[in-house]
């Protein structure tokens, strides 16, 4: 039932965003947003010298 609308990529933002909408009877009944890119910075930070952490965390987003 209903219709699924996907907007991917969402432009004019930083990063790779995807939006999915479930439309039933002309109404949005559910919606999902998802980041389509993962670098694993949390994994990279593990066991690292804490003084090095900012180099990575400040590069989550360059905007």
């Amino acid at each position: 039932m209903g219709k699924r609308i996907t907007i991917d990529p969402v432009t004019r933002i930083e990063g790779h965003l995807r939006i999915d909408c479930q439309v039933d009877g002309g109404k949005v009944t559910n919606a999902w947003s998802s980041g389509q890119m993962w670098r694993g910075i949390e994994v990279i930070l593990k066991d690292r010298d804490p003084r090095d952490a900012w180099i990575f965390t400040q590069r989550f987003c360059g905007v």
Partner: peptide, 12 residues
């Protein structure tokens, strides 16, 4: 360019 494109989704 994803960051500057006016159209989104399938238009981009």
């Amino acid at each position: 360019y994803e960051t500057l494109n006016t159209g989104a989704g399938h238009q981009a």
